[in-house]
Amino acid sequence: MSVSAIRRLILTGLLIAIGIALSIANPTFLKLDNLMTMLQEASLTGIVAIGFTLILITAGIDMSIGAVIAITSMICVNFISYTQLPAYIYIPIALAAGCAIGWVNGFFITHFKLPEFIVTLATRGILAGLALIIAVKDEQGFVKNVFIEDPVFLSFGETVGPVYIVTIVFILLAIATQFFMKRTRAGTNIYASGANPTAARLSGINVDRTLIGVYMFSGFCAALSSIFLAARMMTAMPEFGIGNELDVIASVVIGGTPFTGGIGDIWGTIIGTLFIALIKNGILKLGLSPYIQPIVIGGIIIVTVVADVWYKHHAEKKATQAARRKAMESKEVGA
């Protein structure tokens, strides 16, 4: 069995174990309502995590995803307050804005050869500030709570049966992305660009364009999540999404996509997203201080990454030792 399959089994096992423990500790955990709400939470993070998985596969990072959520929800709010346009017109505009932001990130990273994290950290600051500035204000200059009344928009927060639409969209997007990554040339190019950019260029792949495309997709995913978040809250605030990056990063990393690029897939990210959502829900259901959350999330990232690196190092050492021994033996024969 492959390492990633074992990892997924362990994670799934942990998921079930924590689930059982939680349902013993607090019977309301197993209620359908709680489970579906948890899935809804997981899906909101998960949609962003799908885009972020692709970013990590290219060995990049996107710190601006939270701020993209904030700015797209503010774009929607402005349309609601100042135009009579229906939601099916401005929602695509908001999604396009997410793509455009991704394009800017990708352009700076590829054409100016700047480090990914610092570019996206800078755009994060710019977008977070812009979100506050374009937020709709009342006469005193305070941010006004704009309620979403458009039925099309609100339908994004609805359920089909007991399942929230966002969960369905998350699963569909996950399947589509996984299929895209594994079964199209463009997807293969993304893996190649992350694993070995020099070799990818030698094989005729336009690495810069591939990277820009991935950052655009990441922006799109964040914008999509933002629409669902706003529909669920029936309003939008300029703080939406800010600081959520860490949940996303933790979900993707624990799902088995490393920072080194070239490896990873969406299935791992789905399990990782569920895991993080469960942990967060568990902290809530056990009545623990919500401040434990960032400690646990930060801790999970460090422990996962350290364990991965340690394992990889260990495996590589074993492999090179075996290879050397083999080489030596046949050299003796040859000489």
Binding site: R183, R185, N189, Y191, N196, I205
Partner: peptide, 28 residues
């Protein structure tokens, strides 16, 4: 080994950027 992509299979490496597609579809 310069031009090989780690993490990919032998077949993927051989056919990188010229993978055979399903007839009439953009899928490998």
């Amino acid at each position: 080994e310069l031009s090989l992509i780690h993490g990919m299979t032998v077949a993927q490496n051989i056919f990188l950027t010229k993978e055979p597609l399903l007839p009439g579809l953009p899928f490998i």
